[in-house]
Computed example of a mutant assay.
Amino acid sequence: MKKLSGSVLLMLFFVVVAVAGAAALAIGGINVVQRAVGAHTQEARVAAEERSPEPKTAAQGTESLPTERASGAQGSEWANDQVNAWLQAHGAADVAELAEPYRQVQAWYSSAPGELALLADSATLSDVEELEQIAEDVLQRLAAKPQLQSVSVSTSDGKLTAEAHR
C-alpha cells in the first residue's frame, strides 16, 4: 500500500511539473505574439513613412491602431473622425465588425489636410482591387464630408497601394 501511495505522489508531482511547464510555454508564446504584432505595426509605420513625399510632423498626424485612437495632433484627430464616420456609415463600432476586405484596415493617419491614408493587413490582402474597393467605399460613404478629398489604402508591407479622389 505504501508503495502505491508513493507512486501516486510521484505521478502527481510529474503532472504538476507538466502543467507548470505548459503554463510557462503559453506565457512565452503570448510574449512572442505580442512582439510580432509590435514589429508588424512598426513595419507598417516605416512603410508609410517611406511612401510619404515629405516627413510627417506631429501636427500633420500619425496613424493609430483601431483600438488606440491617436490624440493631440490635429491630423490624427481628423483621421480618427473620418474613420469613425466611415464605421458609423457601416453601422459598426470597430473595424473588426466590418465585412471583408474592410476589416483588414489596421491603422490610419492624415499626412495632409483632406487626405486620409489607411494601412491594411498585407498578409491577408494581395490584390490591388481590394484596396481600391476600400478606398472607394470610404469616399462613397463619406460623400457628405467635402473636406475629405482623397483616400489612399496601402498594405502594411508597402507593396500595394490604391487611391481614390473626389
Rank of each mutant, 00 (worst) to 15 (best):
E63N: 13
G6A: 03
A59F: 04
D121A: 04
V95Y: 07
P55A: 08
A85C: 11
A24N: 10
Q74R: 04
A58F: 03
A58N: 00
S122G: 14
G158Q: 11
S150A: 04
A58S: 00
S64E: 01
M1P: 15
Q42E: 04
D157W: 04
L116W: 08
E100W: 12
A44P: 06
T62Q: 09
S122F: 02
G75C: 06
E49R: 04
Q104A: 14
H90I: 06
V37E: 02
V153Y: 01
E49D: 04
K56Y: 06
Q149T: 13
A26V: 01
A44T: 00
N80A: 13
P55E: 09
S110N: 07
Y102G: 10
Q82Y: 11
S7D: 05
E77H: 11
S71E: 15
K2D: 15
T155Q: 08
V33T: 09
V83Q: 02
G21R: 02
A23E: 14
L4Q: 09
V95K: 04
L98Y: 12
V16F: 08
A93D: 14
L148Y: 03
S152R: 08
A99R: 14
L4G: 05
A120R: 01
S76K: 12
G91R: 14
S150R: 00
L87T: 08
V8C: 06
I134H: 05
A120G: 03
K159Q: 07
L160D: 00
K56M: 04
A79K: 05
I30Y: 12
A164S: 11
W86T: 05
G6F: 04
Y109N: 08
W78P: 05
A59Q: 05
L9R: 02
G91T: 14
Q34W: 05
G114S: 11
Q104C: 14
V128E: 07
D137H: 10
A112H: 15
E115Y: 04
T155C: 09
N84A: 13
L25W: 02
G91C: 13
A58R: 01
R166C: 02
N31P: 08
T155G: 07
